[in-house]
């Protein structure tokens, strides 16, 4: 499907992404299909200034594979990775950080009725240094974006992110709001999206089990991660 920009589109935006390399770079996926009825409302239509991920990519630090997956374990035969991934998949400590409504359902998923502990996902760590998976549960506002990104960057590799709820997946019911982020995949990489407003606890557990499957398929590898919304290759 080839789409051409409409004549009225802003010219300072980058072209439509075509390669996988390009998908890694931008934080804000340029939109050329639609124009706001009031473009000035967004500070003159300027780009986002959240560029830390872009700078991180440019610095090349993310491409060093230090102690993330292989590191000192490179000497072990490749098949050992399967075991390591199994271990990682079965011990996912979420970060104890709820943003809004979904946090209650996240807690409900960990409590007696829907016991996430059964899969080894229970010890909710209060400190990001010890957490493996960031469940972004609830609406992320623009004021919260900075702290949230810092939390993500404070987590040690390997780490994963689960976007829980419509607000974190795409903006949800706050899609017109002046102060919410329209999907957290604009500021940080996301591995699993769990839609729903809020999703049931079973939904979150299903998402976490999907994450386990992804880990077993080696999805957490940093260079393979696409930053930004998941856009089809042919767009």
């Amino acid at each position: 499907m080839a789409l051409t920009p409409e004549p009225g589109a802003a010219s300072n935006l980058p072209a439509i992404v075509t390669e996988r390399r390009d998908l890694v770079e931008p934080i804000v996926v340029p939109n050329t299909l639609w124009q706001s009825s009031n473009p000035v409302a967004y500070n003159g239509g300027q780009d986002s200034e959240i560029t830390h991920l872009r700078e991180f990519e440019a610095s090349g630090a993310g491409r060093r594979d230090d102690a993330r997956w292989a590191g000192p374990l490179e000497v072990i035969p490749t098949k050992a990775d399967i075991v390591l991934d199994l271990i990682r998949a079965n011990s996912l400590w979420p970060l104890l950080s709820g943003l809004a409504c979904c946090a209650i359902e996240m807690m409900s998923a960990a409590t007696s009725k829907n016991d996430m502990d059964r899969w080894g996902m229970f010890p909710f760590r209060a400190s990001p240094r010890q957490a493996d998976v960031l469940i972004v549960a609830g609406t992320c506002t623009t004021k919260m974006a900075g702290p949230l990104v810092r939390l993500w960057e404070q987590m040690p590799e390997p780490k994963w992110c689960v976007a829980m709820g419509d607000c974190t997946c795409s903006g949800g019911r706050y899609k017109r709001s002046y102060s919410t982020i329209q999907g957290i995949d604009r500021i940080m990489p996301v591995d699993v999206y769990v839609p729903g407003c809020p999703p049931r606890p079973e939904g979150l557990i299903y998402g976490m089990m999907k994450l386990q499957q992804l880990i077993k398929d080696r999805r957490g590898h940093w260079p393979d991660r696409a930053i930004g919304p998941t856009v089809p290759e042919d767009l």
Binding site: T139, T141, Y174, R176, S177, Y178, S179
Partner: peptide, 14 residues
């Protein structure tokens, strides 16, 4: 405050 300010009052007016 304000880390969860979603602008509900404005959204309601719209």
């Amino acid at each position: 405050l304000g880390y969860l300010h979603r602008g509900v009052e404005k959204l309601c007016e719209n």
